[in-house]
Amino acid sequence: MLPAATEPALRESWRFFVHLAVVLVPLFIGGSFLVGLAEEYLPPEAVERKLRGHDEGAGNVLAAGFGAVTPFCSCSTVPALAGLLQAGAPLGLAFSFLLASPLVNEIAVILLLGVFGLKLTAVYVVTTFTAAVGGGIAIGRLGLGDHVKDVQGLTGGTDAAAAGVATDGGTVECGSSCSTPVQRSHRTRVGTAARGAWSFFVDTLPYLLVGMTVGALIHGVVPVAVVQRVLGPENPLAVPLAALAGAPIYVSMSGMLPIAASLSEQGVPVGTVLAFVIGGAGVSIPNLVLLTKLFERRLLLVYAGTVVAIGATLGVLFNAVFV
């Protein structure tokens, strides 16, 4: 027999869990399908090739744009980043790509749309994209290029054309040994993306369930006063605390957004919630572990500090605008 006060809290947690499932699961599957299409038409090696030779400014905008529309996971982003650096791309341009990739990717945007609505999501996309461009330019001017490790062996797609594998547009590019290009049909690409979306959903479902469970328990069981005391507007350190707290909690965006939705429902200001999401997505433990293969400690600290600064700055801005 549960205590009298516990049963209503658990019922409320279950109600919120169902609400999150109804809203987020279809969005996640749809977002995963768009991710699959993006990777079918724009694989990492094509991104590397298109970004080579661009300079500061327009190159940072282009790099952030590719980072936003090519939602590679960390295991693909880091080799693509290594390929850019090995090909001689400026460090600042590579950083714009690296900053935009986790913060402005399709799944994050679609889930934010379901949680916070069109207006706030649009402002989020514009501000994080601008921050990725500006952050890359600023880091590029610090002269930290000698803190990049030897990237040989980390590049996954730089030799794709030479090996005769599909690069941009699905056509096999090769040397004189190849006589007939192979073109995959749009129907084949869509089918591959659909199968990949379902497979990705099945693989990610445990994280999504954990995130929804934690979010539901925060919503139904944790007293609002406790959440407000730690992350509410009366705590002057709430925004930077949220940006830092996201990193150890983050496993995947699918698990992060249900917790963010719950915090928002508990009255946590939207900027504080987004600082939590940005900090987690950009400075997640898996992401940092992979980046240690590419960056020396000083450059890794610069990256982590930049992400936390972006999260804290945008958090304060959103709290001021979306009262």
Score class of each variant (00 low, 15 high):
3 P>S: 08
3 P>Q: 07
4 A>D: 09
7 E>Q: 12
9 A>W: 04
9 A>F: 06
13 S>E: 05
14 W>A: 15
16 F>G: 05
24 L>S: 09
26 P>Y: 06
30 G>D: 03
31 G>K: 01
38 A>N: 07
39 E>L: 15
40 E>K: 09
42 L>F: 14
45 E>P: 07
47 V>C: 14
48 E>Q: 15
48 E>D: 14
48 E>F: 10
49 R>L: 15
51 L>P: 12
52 R>G: 14
61 V>D: 05
65 G>S: 13
67 G>Y: 04
81 L>G: 01
83 G>H: 05
85 L>V: 10
88 G>T: 12
90 P>S: 09
91 L>H: 07
94 A>P: 02
94 A>L: 01
98 L>G: 03
103 L>P: 01
105 N>S: 01
113 L>P: 01
115 V>R: 02
116 F>K: 03
117 G>P: 04
122 A>Q: 09
124 Y>I: 00
126 V>L: 15
126 V>D: 08
126 V>K: 04
127 T>P: 06
133 V>D: 04
139 I>E: 02
140 G>A: 11
145 G>Q: 09
150 D>Y: 04
151 V>P: 01
159 D>H: 12
159 D>I: 10
168 D>N: 11
170 G>P: 06
171 T>Y: 12
172 V>E: 08
173 E>V: 14
180 T>C: 05
181 P>C: 08
182 V>W: 05
189 R>S: 07
195 R>V: 02
196 G>W: 04
196 G>V: 08
197 A>R: 01
198 W>N: 02
200 F>W: 06
205 L>S: 09
212 M>K: 04
218 I>C: 07
222 V>G: 00
223 P>K: 03
225 A>C: 05
227 V>C: 02
227 V>F: 02
232 G>D: 03
232 G>K: 00
233 P>Q: 10
233 P>Y: 05
236 P>T: 02
236 P>Y: 04
237 L>M: 13
238 A>Q: 00
239 V>N: 01
240 P>F: 10
249 I>H: 08
255 G>I: 10
255 G>E: 09
257 L>I: 15
265 E>N: 09
268 V>R: 03
270 V>L: 12
270 V>P: 00
277 V>A: 09
282 G>E: 07
285 I>T: 14
286 P>V: 15
286 P>S: 13
286 P>L: 14
288 L>W: 04
290 L>P: 01
301 L>H: 12
305 G>D: 09
311 G>A: 11
319 N>C: 06
319 N>K: 02
